[in-house]
Simulated scan of single mutants.
Amino acid sequence: MSTPADRSELTGPAPIDLGTLRTAPKVLLHDHLDGGLRPATVLELARDCGYEGLPADDAESLAEWFAAAAGSGSLVRYLETFEHTVAVMQTPAGLARVAAECALDLAEDSVVYAEVRFAPEQHLERGLTLDEVVHHTLLGFEEGIARARELGREIRIGCLLTAMRHAARSREIAELAVRFRDRGVVGFDIAGAEAGHPPSRHLDAFEHMRANNAHFTIHAGEAFGLPSIHEAIAFCGADRLGHGVRITDDIEIGPGGGAVLGRVANYVRDKRIPLELCPSSNVQTGAVASLEEHPFDVLARLRFRVTVNTDNRLMSATTMSGEMLALVRTFGYGWSDLERFTINAVKSAFIPFPDRLRLIDDVVKPGYAVLIG
């Protein structure tokens, strides 16, 4: 496999294939911890904790089941796959192991910064408190980061704490996010089925985040339309939109390719509100019909702040390199485009401005300069 160092004396752009993509520095903003477990780890943790509900008893078959179940075209069915992963993440050891392996797997794919989210309220079945759940998860991230460094790979991870939009604990989770923000938590999120659960039902949580000058993103515009996006930005004040693909409901493309943007779409673009787009997942959940019909390219050409994300690496059988390769093959992107999408993600990260600048100037730009040639 080629690496940037291998090209030190070469000129011209590197070929864009999975091998070279795995060497490119990447920034990931939308990745669910409980959607990225290794199949073998799911099996081992299930044995350790006595969970007997798995649909397969070997890693390969289990991986195939997750991909098939998640590819049903229904967000509700997609979310049901998490019953199995969450079930094996109920102990300190289970949480820490999953977090450590997440860090290692992302670092192996040359992800240099990632924001990984999970819902602490879903990990209380064996008596852990919310604080204990977050504590052990953050310890796992630290362990994985240290192990990655021993292997010569640098990664930084910020944790996002998610509240489930159908539940009534969002204010409590927002308080938890603020409580842990100097210990590895960088923001707050709400997730779950959108229909019937508008973000405005959680205003007190978002008000708490704003009162404490803390960051938050909102899953909006994935399975539900423009009203979800409008509420997320107009009433809740979201810093970013999780998915946001349905922003195209407010964009009219003319016969000649020109675009007319409605007021919501104009606002999202003008305010540079980042879109956490997850191409493979968006197809699996039925948010878009196919990758060819994904609005990523339209939004990129219209200069929305688009970012590339994995969402759930286990369910989508994907990586950041895989998502980038799919976009390259579908829309013909080159290294400069991928660099732009990566810089978009850095600019949108919930870390201090000087840290974002260092990532861009010291890591992303030099890494892509070698690949661009």
Rank of each mutant, 00 (worst) to 15 (best):
L21K: 14
V260C: 02
A168M: 06
P279S: 10
V268S: 06
A265S: 06
E142M: 06
E194N: 01
T318G: 05
G12S: 02
K347V: 14
D48V: 05
A317R: 05
V186E: 12
E132R: 03
L241V: 11
G257C: 05
A14R: 09
G367H: 08
T3S: 09
A234H: 14
F180G: 10
I251K: 12
D57N: 07
L29D: 14
A107R: 10
P25S: 01
E323F: 08
C236V: 06
Q122V: 03
E64W: 08
I16K: 11
T342G: 15
L277W: 13
R329M: 09
K271F: 01
L124R: 09
A146F: 04
G367C: 04
V133S: 10
R303D: 07
E142R: 10
L79Y: 05
E293M: 04
I145E: 01
A69K: 05
M164W: 03
T129A: 02
G225A: 00
T285R: 01
H202T: 00
E175I: 07
A238G: 15
L130W: 10
G187A: 15
L29F: 13
Y51S: 01
G256Q: 07
V186W: 14
A168T: 07
T23G: 13
A68R: 11
G19R: 15
E64C: 02
A238T: 15
A287S: 00
S348W: 15
P4D: 02
D250P: 06
A211W: 08
K26A: 14
C49M: 11
I253T: 11
R171C: 04
A211G: 12
G184T: 06
L139S: 10
T11D: 09
A174S: 10
D48Y: 07
A87E: 03
G242F: 00
G254T: 14
G332L: 01
L79S: 00
I173C: 04
G73S: 12
V298S: 11
H243A: 04
V27H: 06
H135I: 00
G184A: 09
E80G: 07
D58C: 12
L75M: 14
P279V: 01
V98S: 10
L241C: 09
S61C: 04
A369K: 03
Q284G: 06
I247H: 08
R169M: 07
L371T: 00
S8D: 08
V370S: 02
R356M: 15
L21F: 15
V178G: 12
R272I: 10
G50C: 02
F118Q: 08
R171N: 04
P295W: 07
R246H: 06
V363C: 08
E231C: 01
E52K: 04
G258V: 02
R329T: 03
A234K: 14
